[in-house]
Simulated assay, not measured.
Amino acid sequence: MTDQIQQRIDQIKEDLQVDFVALALSTVNEVTKVRVIRWNYVAGNTNQHYQRIKLQVGKGIGGIVWRTGRAYQATELQKQPEKLVELPITRMEKLATIVAFPALEDGEVKGVLLVGYREETLITEDFLAVAKEKTDELLVYL
């Protein structure tokens, strides 16, 4: 199953013509009962630093989308030092424009899909609609 998910992430990167795509999934620590969100599948990464990112619900892009169950969008990220601290994946991958969507099933977040550009890019409504569709298609794997 993991190979299939990675292939889908690679395909989404090609379909959307973006620089970076990542899918965050979560696990719950059995002892502490704390949910940890990690970027498990990526395409277009420049390094392996994303593997060290562990987010809590409400923290970072993955955590914010996980908590709210709503899409998140940001631009000019490299010009905003405070955002780079709050959103570690954008700093590590030098992303300038990002959009993240929750993969929702019966109102519950199953994953978060992040797509991004390393250059400032205008995000259109059409792009948002297609990216949301791609997120929904991932649910069969989650």
Rank of each mutant, 00 (worst) to 15 (best):
D15A: 08
I37R: 06
L25Y: 07
V36F: 14
Q11R: 08
V18H: 04
V34K: 13
W39Q: 06
L16S: 07
L16K: 05
R35C: 09
Y41W: 10
I12R: 00
N29S: 07
K33D: 14
G44E: 03
F20V: 01
V36Y: 15
W39R: 01
G44H: 00
L25F: 06
E14S: 09
T32Y: 07
S26D: 11
I37K: 04
Q11G: 06
E30M: 12
R38A: 08
N29M: 04
E30R: 13
N47V: 01
E30F: 15
I53W: 02
V28Q: 10
A24S: 13
H49E: 15
L25R: 12
V34Q: 13
H49V: 12
E14L: 07
Q11M: 08
D19Q: 02
N47Q: 02
H49A: 14
G44L: 03
A43I: 02
Y50E: 01
V21I: 03
N29E: 08
S26G: 10
E14N: 07
N45W: 02
N40Y: 10
I53L: 02
T46I: 15
V34Y: 10
N45I: 02
R35I: 09
Q51A: 11
W39F: 07
T46A: 14
N47F: 01
K33M: 11
Q48K: 10
V28I: 12
I53P: 06
N29C: 08
K54T: 11
L23F: 13
L23K: 08
G44S: 06
R38D: 09
V36R: 14
V28S: 07
E14I: 00
Q17N: 11
N29R: 05
V42I: 07
R52A: 14
T32D: 09
K54I: 08
K54V: 13
Q17K: 10
T27W: 09
L16H: 05
N47T: 04
L23M: 09
V31N: 14
